[in-house]
Design a protein around this nucleic acid. Structure first.
Lengths: 241, 241
DNA sequence: GCAATAGTGTCTGTTAGACAATATCGA
DNA sequence: TCGATATTGTCTAACAGACACTATTGC
């Protein structure tokens, strides 16, 4: 491991290395509205500002493991849909030192979202406002449950925006939406999730047809209970074929 | 910058930091077939094996800048479509030490591809075989111009596979395909590019309509020259609206 | 029966693929 | 004129949105 071992004679030992972190966008639905779990910064920079939960990547830890560990440490959850978003590496994104962060999207269903909040009351379930604004989607904003707008620390607003954009883009053609639902759900609940994420109303028959045609829905034969009207059938997600 | 400045009291100075690199998938077309520029490794590990061109990220260098610098150092190109793909961080992806790599897709048109090759003859223009294999796309393989299969170094086969997948996925609905064409091009050339990347034939009238409807094509009024048949109109890419 | 929502059927406009007809160039 | 390819027109099948109709539950 001396000089010239590396690409083009570059000696890595002679160069300063950046810190690498993972940051998690813990998204879910709260009362049917999109929300994200934030953490208040205790120290400068951005002291007392809200930030995405994150942590440093250990030297013997895979990126995915670091994301999973962070999910467990911050939200006390064992499992969630976890997918890498993008890596942010502007030189001055952290004023203290060079930090490159690998951002991840974590999707929680309503129950897991509430459980995470209960397990770690320091987390804030911030509401995400997703204006429809055409197909590209307008600028997204975050606010406290009380409605006060939040100005996120670091470049976390950009990370969150990317998370929402990714989720929206994959919602219709991928299985990603089911990560926001419980094991058993009705078609109406599925549509509600899609509408909440997209910020727009969807056509009911067309939506049902699409989802059925995708082969994602396994009928359970059981129905929801406790309604004062006709109870809807409960479905379970199944991978096609 | 003392202890407890960081998230959750983590002291970064006390922890070993990983090296961070950028790796470039320099893709283009060579004789109408998808190709990628590779570099032979001079030293272990993977000595004499082919790898994606890459370099270490400087401590005062943004990720994107590192990618651009690498593009310039390895291919002597000033500009190209450059987009971040994914960050690979398995612990043992480099047997010597911990290296996290941020991979990038760089798209070159046929002329730039040839120029890069001329400027750096150490690069190998490897052919990418893209079987159609349904919509998801089958396993992609790389081979020398002579046809000998190439087993890429490190996890670079996975990076390349992701690059092809990304390119394919975005081809139809984004402007990405134009990065593989010269300033002026005919509709047939555009269709050829799409067919080469997708590995399948496309319907001509439908393809033309789609591209026109996207608002991407600006007619120039001029026509190609030197054909022995009816010359096609030359178009220029224009951003819609 | 009534209110409310689940679930379905049908019409219509849009879009892609198939196919073929017409246009235009060099030789 | 012919050969080759550009360019356009038309038919049809697939699909989404709109809308309305039927079904089923608790009260």
């Amino acid at each position: 491991m001396t000089e010239s071992v590396f690409l083009e004679g570059y000696d890595p030992a002679a160069y300063e290395r950046p810190s690498v972190t993972v940051d998690l966008v813990l998204m879910g639905l709260r009362g049917g509205r999109p929300a994200v779990l934030l953490q208040e910064r205790r120290d400068p920079p951005f002291k007392k500002r809200w930030a995405l939960p994150g942590s440093f990547v250990g030297i013997d830890e895979a990126l995915e493991s670091a994301a999973e560990r962070t999910l467990h440490e911050k939200a006390r959850l064992e499992r969630a849909h976890l997918e890498q978003l993008y890596t942010f590496g502007a030189v001055d994104r952290d004023p203290r030192m060079r930090v490159i962060t690998v951002s991840w999207l974590a999707l929680l269903n309503e129950q897991d979202f509430a459980a995470a909040l209960a397990a770690n009351p320091a987390l804030l379930p911030a509401a995400i406002d997703v204006p429809w604004a055409g197909d590209a989607g307008g600028p997204i904003t975050v606010a406290t449950p009380g409605g006060t707008p939040i100005d996120l620390a670091f470049d976390h607003a950009a990370i969150l925006a990317l998370a929402v954009q990714r989720l929206r883009g994959k919602l219709d053609y991928s299985e990603i939406g089911f990560a926001l639902l419980p094991e058993l759900f009705t078609l109406r609940q599925l549509q509600d999730v899609h509408e909440a994420i997209l910020g727009t109303a969807l056509n009911k028959p067309a939506f049902r047809r699409r989802m059925q045609d995708r082969g994602w829905l396994a009928a359970t034969g059981t129905r929801e209970e406790g309604t004062s009207y006709r109870p809807a059938e409960l479905f379970r997600f199944q991978r096609p074929l």
